[in-house]
Every structure is written in structure tokens, then in C-alpha cells.
């Protein structure tokens, strides 16, 4: 009898120890976690299921380009923006997959800016910004196993990466926020450019790199399987400027090729670089820098794109 009691006590202590460890581990992980602008993605994943009818996905272009709050206030569309900085198409595929399973949106809009990049992600940091916010589950595991090129363990256990932040913690690291602040997705600076941008001739096309094309096709297939409408889009930027040794002209030629694919796949393709006049877009006032929209530009694009989304939702 005493033996049984002793053993029960030992088991109870072990359970208590493990429970306390889990609490402390989770708490300290939350404090140490890198809070970046991609924080929004984590908050979106924690929203109740089926909260959104529109999911916006892709890199920072759409992150700073289309605001769910504008879509809500102007068109009463419940949307979320899952974009993170330099989110590669393979990463976007898993984001879209998670969002479709979680929220069953009617429309998914994917920005095509990263289609020129031939690798699975730009840098491990960029992959972290997206994947670290994923809830623990099948899609996260699949994404890491599929895409992580460096040590996969650092993506499964964020602690390995973020524990070193102990010496740069600030008050905000200890603050628990449930809602994300959409204003953090707005750029309030302006870099004026001449209004001399002319989109590339649509006849000029280049082959799309294999890896992003493969994952874009997976998104197309996934949307078809789940009866989700897919819109492929390009948010305006100075696509005549070279970026990271890649010419803007090359990027535009890729978009032109994707338009051809989109027709074959039966997917809607809206390159907003060809809608600048309709939006009343002004490069003098609407760019934060050559690549991202500022507050003024993003309002114009949000309203214009929101109208398109509204039409699609109603039809």
C-alpha cells in the first residue's frame, strides 16, 4: 500500500513538473518570440474558423498594398491579409492551404511579385517570418519538411532561434495582444517618382522559374478542389526599376507569361500595373519607395481592388 502511495506521489510530482515546465516554456517562448510585422499572420491563424470570405496572400507588396479594414469599411468584405515580407510562392502555398482549411474563404487573392525568384524561399529569416506564426499542425510540419533547406529543427522549435533575444527584450515583448494593429501594415512615407511608368509590352514573355510555378499550380489545383475562387494579381510598384539584380522588365515578362498560364488554367489574372489610370494612381504621391505603396497609394489600390472583390463575391 505504502509502495503504491509512494509511486503515486512520484507520478504526481513528475506530472506537476512537466505541467509547470510547459507553462514556463510557453510563456517564455511567447516573450522571446520575435515580434515583427508578420505578427499579423499569427493573429489571423488564431481567429475563429470561417471568419474571412477573402484571403489576401503573398509578399510585402500586397501586405502594404491592400487593407482589410478598407475592404470592410467600403464594401463590407471580411478579409484578412496573410502576406509577410518576401513571402515566396512555395510559402504562400502553405499559407493558402492553412487558410482554406481554417476559413473556407470564397476568394483567395495571390500577389505574384515573388514569382521571379527560383528558390523555395529568399532567406531562412523570410521563411521564419511566415512559418513561425503557423499553428502547430499538419500544414506547418509539411511546409517545414518540404521547404526548410537549413536545419529543420530550428523551424519546429522556435526557441532555438529566439532564445538569444533575451538581451534585447523590451516592454512590448511582455505585452499580450490579441488583435493585430493594422496600422503597422501602413507605410506613411512618400518617395515621389515621375509619372512616366509604361508597363511592358504584353507580348514580351519569359519562362517562369520552375519552383514558384510548381507551387502556383498547386495553389490553383487546391482552389479548384475546394471551390475557392483564385485571383492572381500584381500590386503596383515601379516595375521598371531593377531590384536585387533582377530587372523590373524581367519581372513583368514573367507576369505576362503567367497571364498565359492563367488563361489555360481558367484563373482570373489582374495585373494592376495596367490599371493605374483607372485607380487614379499617382507615382508622385502614392509610393513609399520604389517597391511598396504608401498610405495614399494603398488606399487607392484597396478601394479599387475591393470593388473587384465585391463584384466577384456578388456574382
Amino acid at each position: 500500500m505504502n509502495n503504491v502511495m509512494d509511486n503515486l506521489k512520484k507520478i504526481a510530482k513528475a506530472v506537476l513538473f512537466i505541467a509547470l515546465f510547459v507553462v514556463l516554456y510557453t510563456g517564455s517562448r511567447e516573450v522571446l518570440r520575435n515580434k515583427s510585422e508578420s505578427e499579423a499572420l499569427g493573429k489571423i491563424f488564431t481567429m475563429p474558423n470561417e471568419s474571412y470570405s477573402v484571403v489576401l496572400a503573398g509578399p510585402s507588396h500586397i501586405q502594404y498594398g491592400v487593407h482589410p479594414s478598407v475592404l470592410k469599411s467600403e464594401y463590407n468584405i471580411s478579409a484578412c491579409n496573410t502576406a509577410t515580407a518576401a513571402q515566396s510562392m512555395p510559402t504562400t502555398y502553405y499559407v493558402v492551404k492553412e487558410m482554406i482549411e481554417r476559413h473556407s474563404p470564397e476568394i483567395v487573392a495571390v500577389d505574384l511579385f515573388c514569382m521571379f525568384y527560383p528558390e523555395v524561399y529568399f532567406t531562412p529569416t523570410r521563411f521564419h517570418q511566415a512559418i513561425d506564426n503557423f499553428p502547430i499542425g499538419k500544414n506547418k510540419a509539411e511546409a517545414i519538411l518540404d521547404l526548410a533547406e537549413v536545419s529543420k529543427s530550428e523551424f519546429f522549435l522556435n526557441y532555438m532561434l529566439y532564445h538569444g533575444r533575451w538581451k534585447s527584450l523590451t516592454r512590448t515583448d511582455y505585452t499580450v495582444t490579441k488583435e493585430y494593429d493594422e496600422t503597422s501594415q501602413v507605410l506613411y512615407v512618400t518617395t515621389p517618382f515621375e509619372n512616366d511608368f509604361v508597363p511592358l509590352d504584353k507580348a514580351i514573355k519569359n519562362e517562369v522559374p520552375e519552383v514558384p510555378l510548381q507551387y502556383l499550380k498547386k495553389i490553383v489545383d487546391l482552389c479548384k478542389e475546394t471551390n475557392t475562387e483564385l485571383i492572381l494579381t500584381v500590386i503596383p510598384y515601379r516595375a521598371d526599376v531593377d531590384n536585387n539584380d533582377v530587372t523590373g522588365a524581367y519581372q513583368q515578362s514573367i507576369y505576362n507569361k503567367i497571364e498565359e498560364y492563367a488563361q489555360d488554367w481558367g484563373v482570373e489574372y489582374i495585373n494592376l500595373l495596367y490599371h493605374l489610370d483607372d485607380m487614379g494612381f499617382d507615382f508622385q504621391t502614392d509610393m513609399a519607395e520604389f517597391s511598396h505603396l504608401n498610405e495614399s497609394g494603398s488606399m487607392k489600390v484597396s478601394k479599387y481592388f475591393g470593388k473587384i472583390l465585391k463584384d466577384r463575391l456578388e456574382n
Binding site: 513538473f17 517564455s28 522571446l32 536545419s151 526557441y159 532564445h163 538569444g164 533575451w166
Partner: peptide, 25 residues
């Protein structure tokens, strides 16, 4: 006592987890 032991264990454990030099870098 249990609380004291646990305090020491967790102090050691989290000193290693947080202050230890490990991880991708």
C-alpha cells in the same frame, strides 16, 4: 521542499534554454 527543488531545477533549465549558446547561429 518540493517548491525549492523545483525552483532550482527550473532556474537551471531555463538558464540553459535562454542563456545557452545554441541554435542556428
Amino acid at each position: 521542499g518540493l517548491w525549492f527543488r523545483f525552483a532550482i531545477y527550473f532556474a537551471g533549465l531555463f538558464a540553459v534554454l535562454i542563456l545557452g549558446i545554441y541554435g542556428p547561429e
